[in-house]
Design a protein around this nucleic acid. Structure first.
Lengths: 109, 109
DNA sequence: TGCATACATAAGTAAACACTTATATAATGA
DNA sequence: TCATTATATAAGTGTTTACTTATGTATGCA
């Protein structure tokens, strides 16, 4: 892996919001609208973070009907490193379980 | 480790110049003036990169006479991760050996 | 067919970033 | 003591970043 690639990948990871997104994705695939609830951010803001993560090759998208389902790219050269970083981070306050409890979980699978 | 700390550490790493600095430091402690030769950058530019790495806790400084000798902080929570990242990067073209050959290596130890 | 939903993209903006040049500080040595 | 060396810091500048609001696009459903 060359320096430019490594820089792009690490820059994509080194943002609090995107680290949260990756932390959620390390457990299950999710779509944008769920992240707007989990992170309390606007939809364009989330979309732009996703674009950045995708450009770095860290996540994969799968279009399914109206939804775009995002997941971690397990083939990425930094996947193992990323995983060990994510395990060092605490669980987010807002959980997918709380989304389900509020009936806000989308069944996009 | 919390999200803010992780963000600061990763942001400090995710820059091509600083990755090169860390790559060199993974082999031996060096001072600023050696980096200006190795990286062909101005002294203030290097100093500012060092400050950023130090604020993130990734490197240690040791004043010795006129020189400030910088080394990796092996106690940092991300030291192991950092090491595995650095081993993925190619050797820089300019080497400390070439500095020695040119008589530009400072004996600050 | 027409409207709502899920998402992407564009343009604008404030803040952070990586440099530059200029200058300050502190140690060494003639 | 005075010049040199090694480094830090300050101020200025162009670029990147992370948001905002507005709008475009595509899918699904009544």
């Amino acid at each position: 892996m060359d320096y430019k690639q490594m820089e792009q990948s690490l820059k994509a990871v080194s943002d609090e919001t995107r680290m949260l997104i990756l932390k959620y994705l390390s457990k299950e695939a999710l779509c944008i609208c769920e992240f707007t609830e989990l992170l309390d951010m606007t939809q364009p803001a989330i979309s732009q973070h996703m674009r950045k993560l995708k450009q770095a090759g860290l996540i994969c998208e799968e279009k399914r009907g109206r939804w775009t389902i995002w997941s971690l790219n397990r083939e990425h050269a930094l996947f193992a490193v990323l995983t060990s970083l994510l395990t060092m981070l605490p669980e987010p306050k807002r959980t997918v379980e709380s989304l389900i409890a509020e009936g806000k979980k989308v069944n996009c699978s």
